Simulated scan of single mutants.
Amino acid sequence: MLCLVATEKIYERAAHPYKHALLSAIPIPDPEVQKKRQRIVLKGDVPSPVHLPSGCRFHTRCPLVTNQCKVEESVFEEKDLGHWVAYHYG
């Protein structure tokens, strides 16, 4: 039961745009539901792991990027019990 609750919270509390994209890639085993879903396909450049970009590491692909994201790294913090996120707006 604990795993089921944790799984539901992942979907309910998805704050970061990258998590939304990841969750949209998970297939739903119901063909009718799957047909109606819209997949989030990220555009932009995948950052180099050797030369990481300044600010948020995801800003080169984020559809919601702002100037703050480009210069200020997000702090990884616990927003709720067991729910950690590094996102300026989450």
Results as ranks from 00 to 15, higher is better:
L52I: 10
R39S: 11
Q34M: 10
W84T: 00
K43Q: 13
S24Y: 05
H59S: 07
Q38T: 15
H83P: 08
S48P: 04
D30M: 11
P27L: 06
S74L: 03
M1K: 10
V75Q: 04
E77M: 12
S24E: 09
R57P: 09
I40Y: 07
H83Y: 14
L81I: 09
Y11F: 15
P31F: 03
H20W: 15
E72F: 01
Q34D: 13
T66W: 06
G44L: 04
G44C: 00
E12M: 10
V5E: 11
H88Q: 03
L2I: 09
C56R: 05
V75F: 06
Q68C: 02
G90N: 12
Q34E: 15
H16I: 06
Y11L: 14
F76E: 11
T7I: 08
I10A: 13
T60A: 02
N67W: 02
P29G: 05
E8I: 11
E78S: 03
G90T: 03
P53I: 05
Y11N: 05
Y89D: 11
S48N: 13
K35T: 08
E72H: 05
L42H: 00
S54P: 01
M1C: 05
W84S: 05
K79N: 04
L64G: 03
P63F: 04
R37C: 07
T7H: 10
V33R: 01
K9Q: 10
P47V: 04
V71F: 12
Q34H: 01
E32D: 14
G44R: 00
S54L: 05
P31L: 04
C62A: 05
V33E: 05
E77K: 15
M1Y: 03
H59Q: 11
S24N: 00
L23Y: 07
L64I: 08
P49N: 03
V5K: 02
S24F: 12
T60L: 12
A25H: 04
P47A: 04
A14V: 14
L52S: 14
K70N: 08
L64K: 13
A86Y: 15
L4C: 02
H59C: 05
S24R: 04
K19N: 15
D80Q: 08
I40C: 06
L22F: 15
P31N: 03
R57K: 01
R37L: 14
I10E: 03
R61K: 09
D80T: 07
P63M: 01
K19H: 13
P63T: 08
T7Q: 03
I40S: 04
Y18P: 02
C3G: 05
R37D: 13
I28W: 14
L22V: 15
L23N: 07
P49G: 04
G55S: 04
G90I: 10
G44N: 03
N67H: 02
R61A: 11
H83R: 07
C3K: 04
I10H: 01
V46E: 06
L81Q: 07
K36N: 14
D80M: 00
E73R: 10
V85Q: 11
P53N: 06
K35M: 00
T66S: 12
A21G: 13
P27I: 02
E32I: 02
Y87H: 14
A21R: 00
R13L: 14
L2K: 09
L81C: 06
S24C: 08
K36M: 12
K35L: 08
